[in-house]
Design a protein around this nucleic acid. Structure first.
Lengths: 296, 296
DNA sequence: GTTCCGCATGAATCGATAG
DNA sequence: ACTATCGATTCATGCGGAA
């Protein structure tokens, strides 16, 4: 054992509203999460009615405010659903209410989903975007803009866009066969800062679990708002995309998941050999057991 | 004079809050406008402070509600500015307040500006999108979706050759309760409906006006929400892009502009030969003169 | 080994029908 | 009247097997 320490990996099974209280003040650099949308995922999460969504989320965002470092960032992936022919207002109400909690609403990124859900209706088109709301505790926060710069020139951009993720990986694994090197050449040549619109397709192929977002999405924000060794929290872990990416990128990560099956799945997937399973512990007079996994 | 009548073109010089009261109830099919952004364009509009924006806009939106036909649509192009490192909340507050006026918030389109304003800041990227808020008076409104269809993506080529078993099965559920020939319709389809993300570059032809949008933007919404002979209103006419496009597309149009230079510019540009200049008339006990142009 | 092509499936929404 | 359920509608993408 040297002086170098692997970043922490802490996975919790339970309701994040309660689990979060176990996490220290000012200990997280980035919160990236996609909470269950209103009335969605009823089978697994029970479904929150749009009219009660703000009330439901507020105690959680309060805890998130506490655990986030002053220089940290909270990125919330969310989109309001249609109810009675109208966009519901719970998301914009949430913004207003979170501001009263002390959050600064720094920015709103747009995630443009190129392959959105199909369908046709007489009064609206397909919904192909979601909000990525950026909140902070302070006006000054950590941001590493150079890490997400993109190649300039349409030829490079379209070229990269046409390569599927799989193709990129394949080509990078091939030694000296061109693509890997070429890509890095493009990157070093002329780079531009991105904008607040992110174009990504949803990965609808994972059969085992429906990942809420593609890997590129958390990866982009982890690059932008953290450096190696920083800690990334996802209080609605789900299939663990955020945590797996964070680990791969040398960041520490904390994940909380209420559904045992998802929790177990991520636990098995995330460096199984190094996991240390702590004893179950009963929480503060509540009957719910908290299972807790940690890697150091 | 034959039975055919040219669509009306009515241009007003003055404050739209007052001018609007001259326009009849339920007489407009589409309102498309880009009001002066808060605290922006101070030179031309005097600048409304973000904190007073909602209060300033509300009497106007009330009038707009009155003049809009029940089947009509109001599209509001707007984006909140950054104040003290935060996105200001006047836009989302405006949505909530307009709902109390009776407006339905049907949809939020995203206008992705491909070539957005350059610049670099330590805490944010370039802003490359704006909101296009769709409001209606009723759940049922006129929408001509076929007018804005786009060519299908390349994926269709392979798809056309052979329909997957799953898609056949999905369609058969429909076949069971109705007619099955829709499958063949689907196969020959060459166009698809768009989504609620609109990609347009910000090419501003009218450089004299400070915040003109590209012609494609009003054109798209005029196609979508009106047919020939319908009436399009822009209460913040500016350089008159919306009105010029509406006229070109065979729609009637009403424009209101408070800055005389802009008003004159549009007046000279819009079929100057046919313009009839009415006498100046003093409005309802107010000292402000209203100049009014009309073509029939 | 590379390209091509079949295939499953998405944070959906509306209107009609049923309780 | 008001809510719950169900069928119908539709497009782009990555994966995996085939050529």
């Amino acid at each position: 054992m040297g002086a170098f320490m692997e970043p922490r990996i802490d996975l919790y099974l339970g309701d994040c509203k309660e689990i979060l209280s176990e996490i220290l003040d000012n200990s997280v650099d980035l919160i990236f999460t996609s909470p269950p949308y209103a009335d969605q995922r009823k089978k697994t999460y029970g479904g929150i009615h749009p009219d009660q969504y703000v009330e439901w989320f507020l105690p959680i965002s309060k805890q998130l405010f506490r655990v986030l470092k002053p220089t940290g960032t909270f990125v919330l992936n969310i989109k309001e659903k249609v109810l009675n022919g109208e966009r519901h207002t719970y998301v914009i109400e949430l913004i207003l209410t979170m501001k009263k909690q002390g959050w600064l609403w720094t920015e709103e990124f747009i995630w443009h989903k190129k392959n959105c859900y199909p369908g046709k209706w007489p009064n609206r088109f397909r919904d192909s975007w979601e909000r990525l709301l950026q909140f902070n505790k302070q006006r000054r926060f950590n941001m590493y803009q150079e890490e997400v710069m993109v190649p300039t020139g349409d030829w490079a951009r379209s070229r990269l866009k046409n390569l599927s993720e799989t193709d990129k990986k394949r080509d990078e694994s091939k030694v000296g066969s061109g693509f890997g090197k070429n890509i890095s050449n493009w990157l070093t040549r002329e780079k531009a800062y991105p904008t607040n619109v992110i174009h990504l397709a949803t990965e609808c192929n994972n059969k085992k679990h429906s990942a809420a977002f593609p890997e590129n999405l958390p990866e982009w924000f982890i690059k932008l708002f953290t450096k190696e060794g920083d800690v990334v929290l996802d209080p609605f872990m789900g299939s663990g995309t955020t945590n797996l990416i964070a680990k791969r990128m040398g960041r520490g990560t904390i994940g909380i998941e209420i559904v045992p099956e998802y929790y177990e799945m991520v636990r098995n997937q995330i460096k199984p050999g190094q996991l240390v399973l702590f004893d179950d512990k009963v929480k503060y007079g509540k009957s719910q057991k908290t299972r807790y996994c940690s890697v150091r």
